[in-house]
Nucleic acid binder design. Sequence first.
DNA 1: TATTGTTATACTCTATAACTATA
DNA 2: TATAGTTATAGAGTATAACAATA
Lengths: 166, 166
Amino acid sequence: MTDDGVQGLDPRQLEAYFALMEAVSLLQHHVEQQLQASGDLSYVQFQLLARLADAQGQLTMTALADSVVYSRSGLTYQAGLMEKAGLITRGPCPDDERTTLVTITEDGLALLGRVMPGHIQVARGMLFDPLADEDLSRLGDIMVRVRDHMRSLPPRSAAPRRRRQA
Amino acid sequence: MTDDGVQGLDPRQLEAYFALMEAVSLLQHHVEQQLQASGDLSYVQFQLLARLADAQGQLTMTALADSVVYSRSGLTYQAGLMEKAGLITRGPCPDDERTTLVTITEDGLALLGRVMPGHIQVARGMLFDPLADEDLSRLGDIMVRVRDHMRSLPPRSAAPRRRRQA
DNA sequence: TATTGTTATACTCTATAACTATA
DNA sequence: TATAGTTATAGAGTATAACAATA
């Protein structure tokens, strides 16, 4: 809270932060190109497929939007595209008539499987190659902890700003 | 998912990779909101200002575009906005008449300084808080190495796709 | 001929607000 | 009244290609 360096962050911290942001930016760029080339998928769409696969194939729109940090209308847009492409289907939910259940199709799963190898190869070439095995363990351990911490912070698809007048 | 590892990446590597991507996505989101709120800046614009400041205030358009991984036309667009906002100026280069030199203004530097504390605070709250000092050193060390490796890979503003017939 | 930068254009993505329907 | 999802819309951002000027 005092101010040595920029607001109490020492140069070591600053460097770590900026290196992280830059590295991931570069990685994202390449990954996006790979996904586009190999499966005509944007990164968001890839994420959506991955989440669905990870959740036994089904999620509600809201759950899906939350899991990718996304507005619901944005998800509706993407879901429209992906449904048209045959990667997912949308259907009613037996428990709650308001809810839409998104289901990944066979084609969606197949595409995910087809795209994954190249995706991973990019990650390996850019991220893992320059790291020793030990580094990787540490990085994994650290980032899992960080991610879980971040997840525990308040989300955002829920109430961007309303909820202030009854 | 299918198993026996996805293409030779063991689950540990996969988890590290996805945790990294998700954490940085979340971080980016919050940082963007902070920049917007505190300085009416997009993250790209923040990066541009930071690069310029880091380079003693001046860079050519191409150098700037490269340093942010950006198309030159995209940079022209952003530079237009930022010039209009008084954050940078563009002028001729004495050495090479083709080149445009981008210079950060006093206002640009001031804005960068004004925005930085909050920016860092977000990074601290989301990234550094859950980490021990030791973790931070490791993360910094690792990511600097990774970033430098990535930088050493072929860039991209130079020749997007042409250069295939001489 | 190659390179720097700009322009024109077309398109994708994203979010906000208004709306429908259920709970 | 609150929530799930969609729609309409408007705006920001990005890239590609064509272009002008200089090297």
